[in-house]
Design a protein around this nucleic acid. Structure first.
Lengths: 336, 336
DNA sequence: GCCGTTTGCGCAAACGATTGATCAGGCGTT
DNA sequence: AACGCCTGATCAATCGTTTGCGCAAACGGC
């Protein structure tokens, strides 16, 4: 690995001259002839600035960490793209980490921020994390932006959960459904509460009953969707449609409906919140409400950069583009 | 962020003493009393060794990069776990990167290895990458281990592809199938060739015909599986069973069968190579041959560590545990 | 009591990059 | 001729850690 001094020797100039030429220091006074010689020499020896040396001097790594509960969840594909695109646009590289390793007392934060490995963190907390506890384990004014779930003392970015749920429910109402179940996330989760609220708003606006038995709080996983569906279908007066609070849960809804011999959408309509490539590959393909997850990622990095630059903590919501309904084949007018 | 000198001042000793105590230098001669004072002081100020300072001095980051074609593919979940477990066991952290960004001339390698951000790379090349070209863009003796696809000049680790395909085909033969299709990966891909070879071996051993029309080379994606199935079912004498070279492709096989009104497994049996959580959630749940992907990840990191330590390039195959058939509901005896 | 050895610890030089301060000439002005 | 200024480039300190070496003081053997 060639270093500055190698380039300097080859170009016949000093190390500092090379540094200034290569980093494009505007205050540098160097002749064009020298600049050219330096650039040529750098190319010839294949110079790349040493990461550690630069990071040590600048006290800055230009690395941002993205921590998500489960990297293999297809929902994160878009978020990841958004984060990465915005990161490279700002001259940073993205480091992806699993938050499973984050469990015991936040040693992950020590590893990443405490050792100065990254300049900041975009964190999507797990649904079951306690905001207060999390706030404890990250220090004061840490360069941290949380996604979906605001915590005290850090910036956060959310998507319009209520609006998305409302769009899903409105679609089912427009199709003619009157008893609509809601397969929600964990009761403690803020996103789950917001989505349930949006669902209820839509019902209320349409003048429909709000039977509390039609709302479940199982979680976002496939098995949670299955359990929710079993619970809803066991009601004396089961729903003719279900809004699933998440595309993974929706897969479970489909599975349980099939297991109970209910055809989708003929006997049961399903609309999922979120979209992902998996949604188009289920049977039947899932009608979804698409969330602006790519923009969520970009916005999160922008907010993070703001904090790193010393800006104030802020809480943003990504309103553009709005959640939009993707019609596929899992929702239709109720039979009879 | 507290540094060594802060700890030293607080403990009333020199910086070097603190360094030796905290890094557990065995050749250090320090009294137990001093050690205790240093540890206490370090705890009080919340000392964490600065990553950049240490990396600069040691010319080593203890960071390993894992680069895969698509981080959200559920197949990578196990691989990722294996890599990470072995990495932390060796005192390293894992950096996950998307290989989509790796396309243009391998600037990713410059970014990671050239700048000294990581000590080594575990790389799963995309199916469509040219081994020679890839070998060009990584230097001589780069600390690199490839997965699934050996390239000249670097270590590699593979799984028993042929054996897995053989197991899948044997299972279908045992069920009574005689015309068995193979929905393979890209024709250029080494894994695809190995799997196809294993499939043909099983056929040959059973004394069955090897109709070349029954083998397709579409790729590993969902739509590839669909296309393969359409091609196979359009034959004058279509197969009664299909081995899908990948669980994602198998999802496509199921979709296409359904689209053509063929019930699985009654009218068409399907066995997939690889297992993943998605395989249990399809309809019907997929019968799979499970590959030792977790062990693949661990082995890859072990091989990488060997290269980093100056060891010779080597090509390993993960033979333990063997590929094993997971019976679910997508394969049954042929009808009639 | 002298000398060699061990113990306990500090000094200072790296590692590679950045950057404010400095310096040697050349040139124009008074 | 003396002076100041601009240009083009170098010097040297700095970031935080590690580590070979040196240096006292204590110690043990004779």
């Amino acid at each position: 690995m060639a270093k500055l001094s190698d380039v300097a020797a080859r170009a016949g100039v000093s190390v500092s001259a090379v540094s200034r030429v290569l980093s494009g220091d505007p205050s540098a006074r160097l002749s064009e002839a020298t600049r050219e010689r330096v650039r040529k020499a750098a190319g010839e020896v294949g110079y790349h600035p040493n990461f550690a040396g630069r990071a040590l001097k600048l006290a800055r790594t230009d690395v941002l960490a993205l921590i998500v509960p489960d990297v293999t969840n297809s929902l994160f594909a878009e978020l990841t793209r958004g984060v990465e695109d915005e990161a490279v646009a700002r001259g940073c590289v993205m480091l992806l980490a699993r938050s499973e390793d984050m469990q015991p007392g936040g040693s992950m934060f020590d590893r990443l921020l405490g050792e100065g490995r990254v300049d900041g963190i975009v964190l999507q907390p797990r649904d079951d994390t306690d905001p207060e506890e999390l706030a404890q384990s990250v220090g004061e004014r840490a360069p941290l932006v949380t996604i979906h779930q605001p915590i005290p003392g850090a910036s956060s970015v959310v998507v319009p959960d209520a609006l998305a749920a409302r769009r899903a429910t409105e679609h089912l109402i427009a199709l003619g459904h009157r008893r609509i179940g809601f397969a929600g996330g964990l009761a403690g989760s803020p996103t789950a509460r917001r989505r349930a609220a949006g669902h209820l708003e839509a019902l209320e606006e349409a003048g429909l009953e709000q039977d509390p038995h039609l709302v479940t709080w199982r979680g976002y996983r496939e098995q949670d969707g299955r359990a929710s569906t079993a619970e809803l279908l066991a009601l004396p007066e089961p729903p003719t449609a279900i809004v699933a609070a998440n595309v993974n849960a929706a897969v479970g809804v489909l599975a349980q409906a099939r297991a109970q011999g209910l055809a989708v959408p003929d006997a049961l309509s399903v609309v999922a919140i979120h979209d992902a490539w998996t949604a188009g590959h289920t049977w039947p393909p899932l009608t979804c409400v698409r969330m602006p997850l790519y923009e969520l990622g970009r916005t999160a990095v922008a907010a993070l950069a703001h904090v790193i630059d010393g800006g104030a903590i802020e809480h943003r919501s990504v309103e553009d583009p709005e959640p939009v309904l993707i019609r596929r084949e899992s929702a239709a007018a109720p039979r009879g």
